[in-house]
Design a protein around this nucleic acid. Structure first.
Lengths: 365, 365
DNA sequence: CTGTTAGCGCTTTCAG
DNA sequence: CTGAAAGCGCTAACAG
């Protein structure tokens, strides 16, 4: 990695290091026209590329934004990443990507790596977990981030505060009203006849928990009994597995019913994320069940790539890209961050009913 | 960003800078047990986090892999990014992400930024363009990368060599047999009765061009005349627009035909990417046309997120993640790279027929 | 095995 | 307006 240095440029231009630096980088002091031109020429002829590491060391900033996600190929995270990337770009920064497969231990490692690289800010997009097995890693993550903030770093977290993190300055969380929106979705769906079932992520995954809880409270508000909750991994596979379970159950119920009424019940499923919902639908289909004819289902997120899916998925639209952008911007703009836990940045969602929960037979969407 | 330094740790531990460095980082020389422990304690109590910028400066490597994509939210790029990320991770590196929205000018900027950050290697995933308006930017990109390679950097490009780039050492391209696979797809589909139409990206986008050309040659090999080619942007929107055009045309043809035969022709569309295909299907549907009843369509890539799409999309499966991984690994392993243009890393695709091109009425998939 | 001492490439007072 | 010099934090010879 032996590129030419500022010193070489300076020598070639016949000026001092300081002068060369001043003309080649945005210094407040502007050297004379002639000198400047000479330096620029020298730089060009040498193919000079400033060493950002050295600049960073000297200026003690890196122009880096660290982003940690579970899986960049998951469209949910990809959407957020796009927002983060856009925000970073607007600020002339670059984003450093880390993937954790959802384990807090990896998140901790990523945070440490970002801190080591002196990232100006770090955005954590993976959902928080309070499962007992993650407790230790969470504590370490919190400690890592606390220190990072104390050293002047800024962290933006999506959805939930890091478990155990102090309400430090520079620590921001972009609050997402998962619970309220899920409640709203439930209320909207409450009029549907059949039985309600929820497919959620593992217990202790805060985002999933919020959505499940919200949905239940929405049902309760509508005077309905709580829905059964099936737990599975918070991804397509989990949705698929839960869907399989449900499919078997439904088929069995149908067989039993056929003898008597002839009229089959049509369960209404709520999957805690669009990705899970898609998995569930795939499973239902593989068992010969159809949506919405035999089963109704709704998801959460309104993933863009999944909007062309048929039947169109009822869901709650979340401004993922904006959420990512806000998290990346947290602390950059003159935010107070005093709250630590929640600075009230307004994220609005939107219950979006489409064909997958349409109980009438009239095809609409 | 004022974290504690190695010097502070050394002082606290009562050892020299060198010793502290040796115990805290993987040096080949191992200080004594007692001393090591003391240093570690000091580091822990101070919350010491090594400054990667300084380490990078001193060691003159950064542990960074630069990745440039058009749009990280596009599932095609997201899949590749996952591969790159995985490869980077295995090597203990982190990935720096840059987004270009497809413009070579931005690619150039990204390459420069990566070079400045002294990335150990850079992966370019966006498809190459030879459109006249991109000529200048391409030349600059090539120059930038040439210099980067000359300074010891390694670059991995997907699909096509950078236009104008020299066959430098360290410069690798992961060749993707787009043309051959498209031809194979066409041959497979050639038996279908109706008329063939291609929806391609703008002329000059190499990846798209390859696929279009391959498809045409496949048709030719089957004794069929060349298909008409509709051009649009190489994304979902482009597919949608082209789909709309086709939908109108088909509807018109149907009306005209109804009077005479009563039997409508069923065109077979080939979209140069799955994402375009999905857009086209959406457009066809919005106009009341159904797949495969009224129109057959095939895509390319076999994007994972789109596999649950119905009707299931006929396509050509590409090992996107592997491709990303190979590009990231290029040069890292003891590759020769002598070829410059193509080092024959074998990428295999797989024509995958599914329901969207099923001409028989029997639903299969 | 440990400590000293130069740098790595650039920024930035502080003089001139 | 320009130059000299002191670091930024760490590594890596080179001596003890």
């Amino acid at each position: 990695m032996a590129a030419s240095t500022l010193a070489e440029v300076a020598r070639l231009a016949g000026v001092s290091l300081a002068t060369a630096s001043r003309v080649l980088n945005g210094s407040d002091r502007k050297p004379g026209q002639d000198v400047a031109e000479r330096v620029r020429q020298a730089a060009a002829s040498l193919g000079y590329v400033p060493n950002a590491q050295a600049q960073g060391l000297a200026r003690s900033t890196s122009g880096l934004v660290g982003l940690v996600v579970h899986d960049i190929a998951d469209p949910y995270f990809a959407a957020i990443a796009r927002g983060v990337q856009a925000a970073a770009r607007e600020q002339g920064k670059m984003v450093l990507l880390a993937t954790t497969e959802g384990t807090p231990a990896d998140e901790r490692a990523a945070a440490a790596a970002f801190a080591a690289r002196r990232a100006d800010s770090i955005v954590i997009a993976g959902s928080r977990s309070i499962r007992p097995e993650d407790q230790e890693s969470n504590a370490e993550l919190a400690a890592e981030l606390d220190r990072y903030c104390r050293n002047g770093g800024r962290v933006g977290v999506l959805g939930h505060p890091i478990v155990g993190a102090a309400a430090l300055d520079g620590y921001h969380v972009v609050a997402v009203p998962n619970e309220a929106l899920a409640a709203q979705l439930a209320t909207t769906l409450a009029q549907v006849p059949g039985e309600f079932v929820i497919i959620g992520g593992p217990e202790g995954l805060l985002t999933s928990d919020d959505r499940v809880r919200g949905y239940q409270s929405g049902l309760a508000a509508a005077g309905l009994p709580p829905a059964e909750v099936l737990r599975a991994s918070f991804d397509r596979t989990g949705g698929y597995e839960a869907g399989l379970t449900l499919a078997n159950r439904i088929s069995a119920a149908r067989k039993a019913n056929k003898a008597s009424t002839g009229e089959a019940p049509r369960p209404c499923i709520f999957a805690a994320s669009d990705v899970m919902a898609i998995g569930a639908v795939a499973a239902l289909r593989s068992e010969g069940l159809r949506v919405p004819r035999d089963v109704l289902i709704a998801g959460f997120d309104d993933i863009e790539t999944l909007r062309d899916f048929r039947p169109s998925l009822s869901t709650v639209r979340l401004p993922l890209e904006k959420i990512g952008r806000l998290a990346a911007l947290a602390g950059t703009t003159g935010q107070t961050g005093a709250g630590g836990a929640d600075d009230g940045t307004a994220i609005a969602g939107q219950v979006t009913l489409r064909r997958s929960t349409q109980s009438s037979s009239a095809p609409r969407n």
